[in-house]
């Protein structure tokens, strides 16, 4: 028996929206640790890894490991029937061929259940070793989305160059070229800033990401890599899951684009770099 109840159903809805256009069919692995997925897009260029830890659910029960093959478009259709503030419960029998999604509104006076047929999916699972990356960039997820969107109107690929002080995004196309440089925010700016208000005297608040890039760079070695913007734009559909995005880059390795899911886990996207011929 597998049963997982998430109070904030909007999280599950957002997760599905962020991956359903990249991957068609995928196996969800339900274990005592949590609800996880690893799947590649059809061209085997990018990969999504999702982890929702059991401890992040309001209720979680998994008697034995269960693999649930689902069509993500169909799963998304069902989850769209849940309101954002609904509680969502997923249920499946160990040997069953359906998964049940149960939605409950906050007043608990409307309860819906949807059954979706599971499918047998042959998937290729990739072994991704733990790697020390040469460059780690943490920045506002909104800004990253904006940059990927803006550059894709000029070119098809983006070259990301990380140095100790900045991350530079470059593209070129038939109409011209574009460079966007985000400077690493100095330590003082990254931390809380003090604001004086007449009523409260001195008050501390966090700098809003909309007021700047809030770029944090951890660098062992400067890295420059080129990626297809189409995939990065697809990853950015996860933007609403987290205020920040983390990019991890190393020479001649796929980039890892991670969005943390508060108290629950993460969604990570891997994208193979392009190489010059």
């Amino acid at each position: 028996m597998f049963e997982a109840r998430i109070l904030q159903g909007s999280i599950l809805k957002k997760v599905l929206e962020s991956i359903k256009d990249l991957v068609t069919d995928a196996n969800f692995e339900c274990t005592a640790n949590g609800f996880a997925l690893q799947a590649m897009d059809s061209s085997h260029v990018s990969l999504v890894a999702l982890m929702l830890r059991s401890t992040g659910f309001d209720h979680y029960r998994c008697d034995r490991d269960v693999t649930m093959g689902m069509n993500l478009l169909n799963m998304s259709k069902m989850l769209k029937c849940a309101d954002n503030d609904d509680t969502i419960t997923m249920k499946a029998d160990d040997a069953g061929d359906v998964v049940t999604f149960m939605f409950e509104n906050p007043k608990a006076d409307k309860i819906s259940d949807f059954q979706m047929k599971l499918m047998d999916i042959d998937t290729e699972h990739l072994g991704i070793p733990d790697t020390e990356y040469e460059a780690t960039v943490k920045m506002s997820s909104n800004e990253f989305q904006r940059i990927c969107r803006d550059l894709s109107s000029i070119g098809d690929t983006v070259t990301i160059a990380v140095t100790k002080d900045s991350v530079k995004f470059t593209t070129s196309g038939d109409i011209g070229e574009a460079n966007i440089t985000c400077r690493r925010t100095s330590d003082g700016d990254m931390k809380e800033e003090k604001v004086k208000t007449e009523e409260d005297g001195e008050k501390v608040h966090n700098t809003k990401s909309s007021e700047g890039q809030n770029v944090d760079i951890d660098l062992q070695e400067p890295v420059t890599l080129t990626f297809a913007l189409r995939y990065l734009n697809s990853f950015c559909k996860a933007t609403s899951l987290c205020e920040n995005v983390r990019l991890q880059l190393s020479k001649e390795l796929p980039v890892v684009v991670q969005y943390l899911i508060e108290d629950m886990g993460y969604v990570r996207f891997y994208l193979a770099p392009k190489i010059e011929e």
């Binding site: 085997h44 260029v45 990969l47 290729e124 699972h125 990739l126 072994g127 193979a272 770099p273």
Partner: peptide, 14 residues
Amino acid sequence: TAVQNNLAEFYSLM
């Protein structure tokens, strides 16, 4: 021109 790599070139199949 840039050529697109495949993920299997970096990670092993399990």
